[in-house]
Every structure is written in C-alpha cells, then in structure tokens.
C-alpha cells in the first residue's frame, strides 16, 4: 500500500510518468484486493485518463467514460487527483460501496452518467456538447470509448449526429487495443481500419500511440474541432503476462501474479 500511495498535490509534484506509475500501482492493488477482472482494458486506457485529468480537463469540461468496464481506471485516476479517498478504493466492487464495477448513476460528482452497457457514451457526450453550444457555455466534452464498442449500431448513430450538428466542442478518444470480449476485434466483427471508417464520414481523425504521454498531451491540447483520437494501445499495458491477452478482460490477479505485476510496473 505504501508504495502505491499518491501524496496530495501530486499533479504538481510529479511528472506525468510518475503519476501514471503510482496510479497504475494503485489500480493493480485495487483489483487484486477486490479479486475482480477487467484489468486488461483498464491498463490500456489508464494513460489517456491520466493525461486527460492531469493536463487537459478543466472545470468547464465534461468527461464520459463510455467503456464503463474501465471504471477502475477512472476511480484510480480520480484518486490520483484526491477526488476519491484512499480508503474508498479498498471498497471497490464490494458490498455497500460507491464504486461498483461500472460507473454508478449517483454518488460521485465527477461521474455524470452510469455506463457499462456499451454504445451509450458517445450519444450522452454529444448531448452534453450540444447543450453547451445551445447555452453558449465554454468547455469541451471528452468521451473515452473502446474499439469493440463500435460493434454497437448506436455508436454510428451518435457519430452521424455529432458530425451533422458540427459539435466542435467534442473530442472522442478510442482505446484501440484490438481485443474484445471473446476474441480480437478482427475475429469478432472486423471494422479495421476503424480510423478510415471515421474519415469516410468526414470526421477529423488523429492517430496516436495511446501510451505516449507527451504525444497524447500535445495532441489533446491542440484540438478545437470535432475530432476522433484513435489511440493504439496494448491491453494489459506494462504487465508482460497480461499484454495482448484476451483472458485479462476477465481474470482476477492471484497473489503471485499481483506481486509480479507490481515488480514489473515499478521497474519501468
């Protein structure tokens, strides 16, 4: 626990790299203690969440985690900002917790919507962005999606709407880790290259390495139009025995695996 605790004001004291490492360790501990899975997809998007929350999102901005199964990464990121208490993370996924496996509808101010059923988040984000435009409010809306999520037809409905309504205040990040529930994205429902599909709709697309913190920060800070950021990521990033393995969509960590994962993250 001591190794992973992140002191207050970390965003000022630590580099993004250090913040990410400490948050990743806390995420691993949280999942290990709770004996729950979904860790692979949490690790593929954690870098984006840390960059967003520590460098990009301001008080006028809003965020939707469309890939709700990465709630753990969101909780750990909010912890890294001091918005969720250390002690509370120990209740993750247990009885009488605020931190259910997918983001809850009530109880946490930073979470605007319950997500977890895929294909809702982009529409919700589009609604937030649309209302900001109609009400002449400043700030952007950020939506983090999975790649498998694009199997859902409602995502394409939302994309068409966002483009048609010229939602220049909306940034969409896609965690392109290439794995989904029961196989690779190519095996299950091949949409590759996903970025080309988006471009066909006239959407601005930026392709980035989803684990390059500097590139993510630079890219996200420059965006001023409706943009889809396709982030190439690795499921289970940073833990060798998890990387690119579909089973880590589900498996909990054994004690041995947890300690090995911690050693690998600490050595980065």
């Amino acid at each position: 626990m001591q190794d992973s605790a992140l002191p207050e004001d970390s965003s000022r004291k630590f580099s993004l790299e250090k913040t990410l490492k400490l948050t990743k360790l806390r995420l691993l501990l949280m999942h290990f203690e709770s004996k729950v899975g979904h860790i692979g997809g949490n690790l593929s998007c954690l870098d984006m969440l840390v960059v967003l929350y520590h460098r990009i999102i301001t008080k006028d901005d809003q965020f939707i985690l469309s890939k709700g199964h990465s709630a753990g990464a969101l909780y750990a990121t909010l912890w890294s900002l001091g918005r969720i208490e250390e002690q509370e993370l120990s209740h993750f996924h247990r009885d009488n917790t605020r931190l259910s496996a997918h983001p809850p509808p009530t109880g946490i101010d930073d979470i605007l919507f319950a997500t977890g059923s895929l294909g809702h988040g982009l529409s919700l984000a589009a609604g937030l962005a649309m209302s900001k435009k109609l009400l002449n409010q400043s700030g952007r809306v950020y939506c983090l999606m999975s790649d498998g999520e694009w199997n859902e037809g409602s995502c394409w409905e939302a994309l068409i709407f966002a483009k048609q309504q010229q939602l220049d205040n909306l940034t969409v990040l896609i965690d392109l880790n290439g794995l989904q529930g029961f196989g690779t994205t190519q095996e299950v429902a091949d949409l590759s290259p996903l970025e080309e599909k988006f471009k066909c709709f006239g959407i601005d697309v930026v392709e980035v390495d989803g684990h390059d913190l500097n590139v993510l920060e630079k890219t996200l800070s420059k965006i001023q139009r409706l943009t889809f950021v396709v982030a190439r990521t690795i499921k289970g990033k940073g833990v060798s025995f998890m990387e690119n393995r579909v089973e880590w969509h589900y498996l909990p960590l054994s004690e041995e695996q947890y300690h090995r994962a911690v050693r690998e993250i600490q050595s980065l």
Binding site: G119, L124, G127, G153, E157, I160, F161
Partner: peptide
C-alpha cells in the same frame, strides 16, 4: 430555430442525446 433538432432516424442516439442535454439543465 436551433432548439428544434431533427436527430434523424436514430432513436437510440436521440434519447441519449436528450439525457445529456438534460444533465446540463436543458
């Protein structure tokens, strides 16, 4: 005017968009 939105033949999106707008006090 702008407060009339034809969201197209896409009811799932339309309902969630409405939820997002309501979250921002519309």
């Amino acid at each position: 005017g702008k407060r009339f939105i034809n969201a197209g033949v896409a009811e799932q999106n339309m309902v969630s968009v409405a939820a997002g707008m309501a979250r921002n006090k519309m």
